[in-house]
């Protein structure tokens, strides 16, 4: 069950982390492959934020499709179903080029655009204290100046092997969120580039020792990943057996959206739409 394609990899990863956190160690290749599928990480949110405003975002759709083309490997608890195809690295580099072009385009059209600045700069600034109190996470939190990224704070999977920076904003307004997302896309490309170089030629693709039906001992676990919208957490309570007793999802969009009232009050109606777009909600996460 995924709540948001094509960012499903991040969420499936969280679910799997929750399941085999205690007992099983997945092999490195598994983690690497799972990571590669997070290429399209912030591409979507940027598109969502920009879409209301101008048509260059339609060009982003092309790169989004290109990235979805890369997702050719099914993920399973413990690993992946197949090894990647032979031309994967070449294909991935081609996709990365397209994404880079798309990001540069958006950068050229939007970042210095006076009209864009006039609309977005200074709109609903959020202080770090407010952000933490309201439960923000992800780019919204980082735009306010809080340097908190789960990939650094609690490295999961193989993120500790990669060298990347965490972009942080100053004012927490809509323009800062846009900038943070744009820069995160560039850092994601950097990560994927390093992953492609570090990927071994062959190796195991599935953890050994996994049964068809996974039985976990009684207990509870909360596993969280850094999804494009923020902290995506999965909380599972098990009473033994193969079915969870409780499975709760902490969706980042839901928590970010809950602060909409605080951010919108005092602004124009036309600006409310912009603020909503900048939160970048994924409705299936919000509704669940």
């Amino acid at each position: 069950m995924t709540l948001d394609e094509p960012f499903a990899p991040a969420e499936r990863l969280a679910a799997r982390l929750a399941i085999w956190r205690q007992r099983l160690r997945a092999t490195p290749l598994v983690d690497l492959l799972a990571l590669l599928l997070d290429v399209s990480e912030p591409l979507g949110p940027l598109g969502a934020q920009v879409l209301w405003v101008a048509q260059p975002a339609l060009g982003l759709m092309v790169s989004r499709e290109a990235v979805a083309d890369l997702a050719q490997v099914l993920e399973r608890p413990g690993g992946v179903a197949w090894d990647v195809p032979d031309d994967f690295e070449e294909h991935a580099r081609y996709v990365l080029d397209r994404v880079r072009t798309a990001i540069d385009d958006i950068d050229g059209i939007m970042t210095e655009n006076e009209v864009f600045l006039a609309r977005c700069r200074g709109l609903s600034p959020v202080t770090p204290e407010q952000a933490i109190n309201w439960g923000f996470s992800g780019p919204m939190l980082r735009a306010t100046g809080v340097k908190h990224d789960l990939r650094r704070a609690e490295p999961y999977s193989i993120y500790d092997r990669f060298d990347f920076e965490i972009p942080v904003g100053t004012q927490g307004d809509v323009y800062d969120r846009y900038l943070v997302r744009l820069e995160e896309m560039r850092q994601s490309i950097r990560i994927v580039d390093q992953a492609l170089r570090q990927m071994p030629k062959n190796g195991p693709i599935m953890a050994s020792g996994l049964k068809r039906t996974i039985r976990v001992p009684p207990g509870e676990v909360y596993a969280r990943t850094e999804s494009p919208r923020g902290e995506y957490g999965v909380y599972i309570v098990s009473k033994g057996g193969d079915k969870p007793w409780r499975h709760k999802v902490r969706a980042a969009s839901f928590c970010n959206l809950s602060a909409l009232r605080n951010m919108v009050v005092g602004n124009y109606v036309a600006d409310a739409i912009i603020i909503l777009g900048s939160i970048d909600i994924v409705l299936c996460e919000v509704d669940r």
Partner: peptide, 21 residues
Amino acid sequence: MLGILRALGTVVSAALRKPAT
């Protein structure tokens, strides 16, 4: 002003690319 000119420049260079259709 410069930002708008830069935007126009990017738009023109995007228009001259081969379309993805």
